[in-house]
């Protein structure tokens, strides 16, 4: 107990004293996960829209495929990507294994089905009347789509936040394709996993607190946005 107490005090000290080592790790986490989210958001929202409003064969099958992909464990994504990117793998020539780019790709694969599935349900439950109103007032299909998305923005925002929360705390894939290399691919979850196993409790607790605070902030933010929306 004494040990945990001491480690927590050390952890707070690390954070408050802005220990460069720890902030570098935090920076890598945010940089990788934000890139992944930024790249997948536009295509995921488009696909979610087509799944909700499109009228083509195989639409339902596609929706269930995306729901199935939600359940794929991060280590399985990591393993697959590892095999593809390893020196003898089909994409080995790209020399991406153990780089931040590989981590970004892995997190994109993890975030993609989350945003599609959650954005799809948000758009599916949005009112068809929105689309018809936009169309009848002369909007092009693209413009009508943007209007529908704007009206469903809180649901879409929740989808993006949920995906971000998942990938920034995800360890399996980042560890496999990133390799936890200090100053390079060591991010919050890989640092917690590996450094804690070496007895570095303070750092682990400090990083864990960062993830908790992030989760808290994102949820408060979402909650207040939703409150404003429902009050309207």
């Amino acid at each position: 107990m004494q040990e945990v107490y001491q480690a927590t005090v050390d952890a707070l000290f690390l954070l408050i004293a802005a220990d460069p080592g720890i902030w570098e790790i935090i920076g890598i986490s945010f940089s990788v996960s934000l890139q992944a989210i930024i790249y997948i958001t536009p295509p995921s929202l488009m696909i979610a829209f087509l799944l909700a409003y499109g009228n083509f064969r195989g639409r339902r099958a596609l929706v269930s495929i995306f729901h199935t992909l939600l359940a794929v464990p991060a280590v399985v994504v990591g393993l697959t990507l590892y095999i593809l990117l390893s020196r003898n793998g089909p994409l080995g020539d790209l020399k991406l294994l153990f780089t931040q780019t590989a981590m970004v790709i892995g997190q994109m694969i993890l975030a993609f089905p989350i945003v599609v599935a959650m954005a799809h349900s948000a758009l599916q439950s949005s009112d068809r009347v929105i689309w018809e109103t936009a169309k009848t007032l002369g909007a092009s299909p693209q413009r009508a789509m943007i209007t529908v998305m704007y009206e469903a923005r809180f649901g879409l925002f929740a989808a993006i936040v949920a995906a971000f929360s998942r990938i920034i705390a995800e360890v399996g894939c980042s560890l496999m394709v990133g390799g936890n290399i200090l100053h390079h691919t060591r991010n919050i979850p890989t640092a917690i996993t590996l450094e804690t196993s070496k007895g570095e409790f303070a750092q682990g607790i400090a990083l864990g607190m960062v993830l908790l605070i992030l989760a808290l902030v994102l949820n408060l933010f979402l909650g207040s946005a939703r409150y404003r929306f429902e009050a309207a």
Binding site: V129, I130, T133, T136, L137, T147, E151, F229
Partner: peptide, 11 residues
């Protein structure tokens, strides 16, 4: 222009 029975107001 078609007006719905319960017109939708954009937010």
């Amino acid at each position: 222009v078609y007006l719905h029975q319960a017109p939708y107001m954009f937010d």
